Lab assay of single mutants.
Amino acid sequence: MEVRTIKVFTTVDNINLHTQVVDMSMTYGQQFGPTYLDGADVTKIKPHNSHEGKTFYVLPNDDTLRVEAFEYYHTTDPSFLGRYMSALNHTKKWKYPQVNGLTSIKWADNNCYLATALLTLQQIELKFNPPALQDAYYRARAGEAANFCALILAYCNKTVGELGDVRETMSYLFQHANLDSCKRVLNVVCKTCGQQQTTLKGVEAVMYMGTLSYEQFKKGVQIPCTCGKQATKYLVQQESPFVMMSAPPAQYELKHGTFTCASEYTGNYQCGHYKHITSKETLYCIDGALLTKSSEYKGPITDVFYKENSYTTTIK
């Protein structure tokens, strides 16, 4: 009895394709271990004539594949690729409408935090270190965002349907971005203890939790000093293409032309909904596939993004 075979390709990165001759009487799992086709788990399936010449994702289970996976995804987590594939199996079914010149995501599976993050990423200057993220990001900007969303979920250790947080998501993504040249110098002034300067680099240099107003941050924000008295913390120097200011959701007025974009969060910790506000020729609110415009805006804002380049204080 002759062994019926077909020729397929296996890959971990969709760049390096490895030619395989597979036995049609055995499952993919018996031949390769966990195997995925377009995100779908085909591990328990036997090869079919229609699979001839198709590319299958496999887990990096030998040295060659491990090197290829690390170079593309910059992670050695053995569960990463499987999590990416199972997320992709959902995100490829989502709709990605162009809204006001940006790629958004039609609401499904509690994905409003991903839509808000995706919209924000198209408006701030950011370059990702893992080629996987950078490639998928370019495709997302062009309207094909399924891979990018699935990668975000995998890097953030999230599953489809789980509630997510924009600030946490951005923080994970910033860790995989090139923020080497970003720098922030802060000064804390206390009447009792004097003053202390701190220099922050990388992710810490672009994120701040405690106030939404970048102007206020430049002037000074009140913080408790270690001595128990009130101290003032203010920005001395900022070198970065953008800054992200966050605070627990509270009524906040966004003035046209003073910011790049913002995240609105309605609801409580267990259950809520994100919308995205962007400042173009007027203010726009993007909620999944829905767009509304207004000249002014007041609502429960939790993150505001500002364009920056270089700032030095005039406070002496």
Rank of each mutant, 00 (worst) to 15 (best):
C227A: 01
E264G: 09
Q251R: 14
H176S: 03
T43M: 10
A142C: 14
Q195S: 14
F70Q: 10
L65I: 06
T199Y: 07
E125T: 10
P78G: 11
C190S: 02
Y274N: 00
T192A: 09
K293Q: 14
Y208S: 09
K44G: 13
Y269D: 15
A117L: 03
E215V: 01
A250E: 13
C285M: 11
E162K: 01
E308K: 04
G228I: 02
Y311E: 15
R66V: 13
S213M: 01
N157E: 07
Q230E: 09
P34N: 13
T91Y: 03
R66M: 13
E264P: 01
L153P: 02
L114F: 03
V221H: 06
L17Q: 13
E125N: 09
E264M: 05
C149I: 09
V304K: 02
S181I: 03
Y311Q: 11
L121V: 13
T11K: 05
Q134M: 06
A87R: 03
A146V: 04
N157H: 12
Y84K: 06
T55C: 10
L118W: 07
Y72D: 03
G82T: 12
C112I: 01
D13A: 10
V21W: 11
Y252L: 08
C271V: 09
L118H: 03
N187V: 12
D180T: 11
P78A: 12
G210M: 05
K229I: 07
L65G: 05
T313V: 12
H176R: 10
A140L: 13
D165L: 04
T211S: 09
Y96S: 02
I277W: 13
G272Q: 01
A154D: 00
Y138L: 14
V22Q: 08
S294I: 15
Q30S: 13
T116E: 03
S310E: 12
V304W: 01
V206D: 03
S104F: 07
T282M: 11
V21F: 14
I124M: 06
L88D: 04
R139H: 13
P34F: 00
Q123W: 01
P131D: 03
D303Y: 02
C190K: 01
L291T: 14
G161Q: 03
K127Q: 15
D165E: 05
P47Q: 04
V185C: 02
F80N: 05
L37K: 11
V42Y: 12
S25N: 15
E253P: 09
K158N: 02
H51T: 05
H51K: 01
A289D: 15
M244G: 02
